[in-house]
């Protein structure tokens, strides 16, 4: 693919993704053992995060990484677009996909507890091209709600795709 084709592909994605809903949703069950294993990685010993299953625990903040990334892989890699009459994915070579930035907002959110059943949806934010290195950047705004429809966290992921990957 030459520079002109890469640029056209970037322009197509910018026009067709920015501000649009990402189709689909991901369900995620929060298990006690997963929460404990994750907290232990960071040496967290507070019983709030690693206490007994009977008393109940909540997720440490870092646990948001666990379901956010899994959900995004499912949502983004499943996207099908039509460019010049041909179906294409968002990323044509996942090896060119880079994780550039991560934002989490917990303002007004409820705690994430063992047993929660999460419902994860996403929307494209800004999508833009850095012409210097032809890196395509895209923000994805995610909403994570529990089984009662309460917001658990609002992640924003910035993905980068190197030329040849989009």
């Amino acid at each position: 693919m030459d520079d002109e084709q890469i640029k056209k592909s970037a322009e197509f994605l910018i026009a067709n993704l920015a501000g649009k809903e990402v189709p689909g949703r991901v369900k995620f069950n929060v298990r006690y053992k997963t929460l404990v294993d994750f907290a232990k990685i960071y040496g967290i010993t507070d019983s709030k995060y690693v206490g007994s299953e009977e008393e109940g625990i909540i997720a440490c903040h870092a646990f948001a990484n666990n379901f956010t990334i899994k959900a995004l892989y499912k949502l983004l890699l499943g996207i099908k677009l039509v460019q010049n009459g041909e179906e294409r994915p968002f990323v044509t070579n996942p090896g060119k996909l880079l994780h550039m930035g991560q934002k989490y907002n917990w303002d007004g959110c409820v705690e994430l507890k063992q047993g929660d059943k999460l419902n994860i949806t996403a929307k494209w934010g800004k999508v833009w091209l850095i012409e210097k290195n032809m890196m395509l950047l895209a923000e994805v705004h995610v909403e994570v709600k529990n089984q009662d429809g309460e917001m658990v966290v609002r992640p924003v992921v910035t993905a980068g795709v190197r030329p040849g990957g989009y």
Partner: peptide, 21 residues
């Protein structure tokens, strides 16, 4: 996030609102 959890003594003194890295 652990830095802030420890600083806030796991929610006793406050809460983490946002991180952006």
């Amino acid at each position: 996030t652990k830095l802030f959890e420890d600083f806030l003594e796991h929610g006793k003194h406050g809460k983490l609102i946002e991180t952006d890295v």
